[in-house]
Design a protein around this nucleic acid. Structure first.
Lengths: 261, 261
DNA sequence: CCCAATCGTGCATAAACGTGCATGAACGTG
DNA sequence: CACGTTCATGCACGTTTATGCACGATTGGG
């Protein structure tokens, strides 16, 4: 094999990773007739670029991590259940409600009132099963399933969503800020959310503390487009005030209400 | 078995935990040819990461699943895991596979090989999440979600399915009989299944013992339309013979085989 | 209460690792 | 052509990691 450029070697390593799921540093060094240092440098670069996971002895294919969704679900589970308890009553009897993907929204779906004859539309499989279990008429938006967000994204999903006119949209936010509005982590995600915001009569966001006052890279909607915002009881008063003054109905959830005026 | 990376070993332990619900330290040590100390260290790390529960002698799975399917999932779970172990290898590398709703098929989805670059299409939310977790490209067929079957049904689902030409269709059956063929409990279900049978290059059915030799009300396909049938080892020989003589490749799944890849 | 299995900890070792530095080739500039 | 720059590479060095072994503590069944 003739002289290999660095990039070529890395491309070959990537191919092998994709095929076999793992590579050994020492093995690659012999195969390419370079020192292990060089291979380690390659693997480090690739790991930094998100192309593989660096482990002792070599590298593994970057895995869409197992617990990504179930893990997120267990993070701050108490807070999410609290928010869900406050948000669920806002789904009016007989309404058609779109529920976005997201672990907080899953908690809401698991809390919807039985016998309220709700029609739930969602792009998230987990939310569909939860809503179905609660006796709601449930419509699932199909399309390419994105394991990172736990919902369907892409053209087909958007096309199906474009035919809806829901009474309420329960929006999943990656960041909520009075100035920046609602933001999302990825372009595709943001696009679908924007579409649905535009088609819905009302928009509700339930945000955990870590999302309040932060903004992600892709804008979804300005604050004045929001109808309801559900936050924890520990939300700073001035932040809640900032949303209220923009016409958002802010609900503070919590075991103990404070600042109830 | 070649050199195993630490992380790989832990991933394998996690898989086994997921399948069997428990692992024994001494057994794992022999299996991986390492000392029990090393295994204990692995288990300790995994327990710290919340992936298992550490107990005297080994470790237990610590993931309480949710959803309405969870009940059906636990019924005859061993048998389904056995069938799934035999059926999963039949999903060829790179193929596009439609997986029907059903608890047996969910077990198959949870067992698909990582890194086989499969494209999985399904009408069942639970199967979509499972396939996504296993690293497969996953497409979800949308539509009205039917909590009874755990999948989407209806006109929209059928319309999306009508655009597919899958390599393999993993059909979920309510009844399988040499004479009556494959049958389903509801008209709508049967209709979707019929459509997909007609569009697929091959059809696979994994049937638990209680479904063999029985027929439900709505016909889906004759036996000669089946490519593979996966049954338990306790399937009566003459029944298996009856299928074979109609051109079906019958695979009898043995009790829990676990081998190197 | 006893015993064996199992466990945790401390320690030693070898492999794998990261870093800093030197070399040499490729490249652009004047 | 002479020169400086950039970059991939290999080597030396000290550090970290994974592992097995020894030893005492803990567990759980009889």
């Amino acid at each position: 094999m003739s002289q290999l450029l660095t990039r070529e070697r890395q491309a070959l390593i990537r191919d092998r990773l994709q095929d076999e799921g793992r590579v050994l540093a020492g093995e690659l060094a012999k195969f390419f007739s370079v020192s292990e240092d060089t291979i380690r440098r390659d693997l480090r670069e690739m790991a930094a670029a998100g192309l593989c996971e660096r482990v002792y002895g070599g590298a593994l294919r970057a895995a869409p991590q197992h617990g990504s969704l179930s893990h997120r679900q267990s993070v701050a589970a108490d807070e999410k259940a609290m928010l869900a308890g406050a948000a669920a009553p806002l789904l009016k009897r007989g309404a058609t409600v779109v529920i976005d993907a997201g672990s907080t929204n899953l908690a809401i779906a698991a809390r919807i009132s039985q016998g309220h004859r709700l029609t739930i539309v969602t792009n998230a499989p987990a939310i569909a099963t939860a809503a179905g279990d609660r006796g709601a008429d449930t419509i699932l938006l199909g399309g390419r399933y994105d394991a990172a967000t736990g919902g369907c994204l892409g053209a087909r999903t958007a096309a199906e969503a474009a035919q809806l006119r829901p009474d309420l949209y329960v929006l999943g936010a990656c960041g909520v800020d009075p100035a920046a509005g609602v933001t999302a982590f990825s372009q595709e995600e943001a696009e679908l959310k924007r579409l649905l915001v535009g088609r819905s009569r009302a928009v509700l966001v339930a945000a955990t503390a870590d999302k309040l006052g932060t903004a992600a890279s892709f804008g979804v909607a300005d604050c004045d487009r929001l109808t309801h915002l559900v936050v924890g009881a520990d939300c700073p008063a001035e932040l809640a005030q900032a949303f209220s003054s923009r016409g958002v109905a802010v609900t503070q959830a919590g075991p103990q209400r404070r600042g109830a005026s």
